[in-house]
Each structure stands twice: as C-alpha cells, then as structure tokens.
Design a protein around this nucleic acid. Sequence first.
DNA 1: ACAGTGATTGGCT
DNA 2: GCCAATCACTGTG
Length: 216
Amino acid sequence: MAESRRLGKADLTLPCKEMAHYLLGKILARKLDNGAVLKGRIVETECYLGGEDKASHSYNGRQTPGNEPMYMPSGTTYVYFTYGMYFCFNISSIEPGAVVLIRAAEPLQGLETMAKFRSVKKKGVLKETELCNGPSKLCIAMNMTKQNCNKMDLCESEVLWIEDDGGKVEEKEIVISTRIGIASAGEEWAGKPLRFYVLSNPHVSKRDKKAERELS
DNA sequence: ACAGTGATTGGCT
DNA sequence: GCCAATCACTGTG
C-alpha cells in the first residue's frame, strides 16, 4: 500500500469548487474512541455556496447557531442533523458560508466495523458498495455525528483528518452533475452543475448517465 | 431499473 | 408549526 500524507492547512485552504474537485480521491480517516481507524476514499462531493445558493443553509448570508462552522476557517467540519434521524458531513472552504458535502466514499480500512455500524434489519449481507454510498450512510458507517465530529479542524483533529496516498483522479474521470435532494430550492439552483463524482466508481450514490455520456 | 412512500425529530421562523 | 443536502422498503414493469 502506498504511503499516505496527512493534509494540512496549505492543502485544505481552497475555494469551494476547487475543494470539491481536490477532495475526490483523497482519504477520509476517522479514529474511533477505541482507537480503531476507519478509512474511505472520497468519490463524490457537492458544493453548497453562500449567498445566492438557495439550496445552501447559508443562503442569503443566513447565520444561525447551527450553521456556524460554515463560516469558520477552510478545513473545518460542518455536521448537521436532518430528516429526523440522519447526519451529513461537510467541509468548509475559504469562502464564507460555502462548504463541500461529502456524499460517498470507497471503504478502505475497517470494513467490518463499518458494516456493524451500518447493519440494518434487512436479511442478508450488506454489499461493500452499500456501506458508504450516500452522505448519511457514510456518517453511519464511520460513526460521525454532530456530537462527535462537528466544528473540528481537519488539520489538527485527533479523530478526523484527510490523507493523500497519491491516488489520482484525472480531470476527465470527474463527472459533473446536479445536486441531489434539493428540488425545493427551485429549478435554477437545483439545475446547477455542483455535484462531482468519479466516473464509473461503484461506490457513488447516484449516477447521471447523461452527464457520463457527454463526458466521453 | 425505477417510482412512490413512511419514518422521525431538531432547529428555525 | 413546518419541514428537511436521506434511507430502506415496497410495488410495478
């Protein structure tokens, strides 16, 4: 296995869209209370911009106690609770209010532990591609909640960080699509090309066949 | 494969 | 009081 380098401030200080591209192929690492480390390669991201972006929690400059990390220094984690039972994990950019949602990852380390966290009533075994192929599935698999992973500095934290193992994602492998689950924000913003994922990667949450055809 | 739907509760207005 | 950056499950083709 290739040697991994932990990313620092110089790496994670980026504008939102650049951050969303840059994070593809990087490794998200999560250290549990028992010392075990879970790792997954990021394969799908989305941008939530500040200001005009109606889908963003920071739309029109909105600031609340809950979305404070969206305005914190680049590389700060923003975890929020949604739909009464799920969490989503984001990373702030240098642009105030603009963050990158991490939507899916390819499990690399600690797969059995992830499977335990993810185990659901359904009979049968959960496939590897079903562990982290969605923003809230990722949070469940890696035990990330608002209580234990919010407002953390990814460059300093002992329990959460990003690594680069040299795995490259070519620009031509990056599919650009529309964001998921934001129809209520209106057609204009729901239609913006702000979702990015690795072409043909089986761990992606949702494919966009049309965008994939146009890419090739 | 894809569409439709119920679950469930914190945070904001 | 409203509703959400989702998920798992069910039914249909």
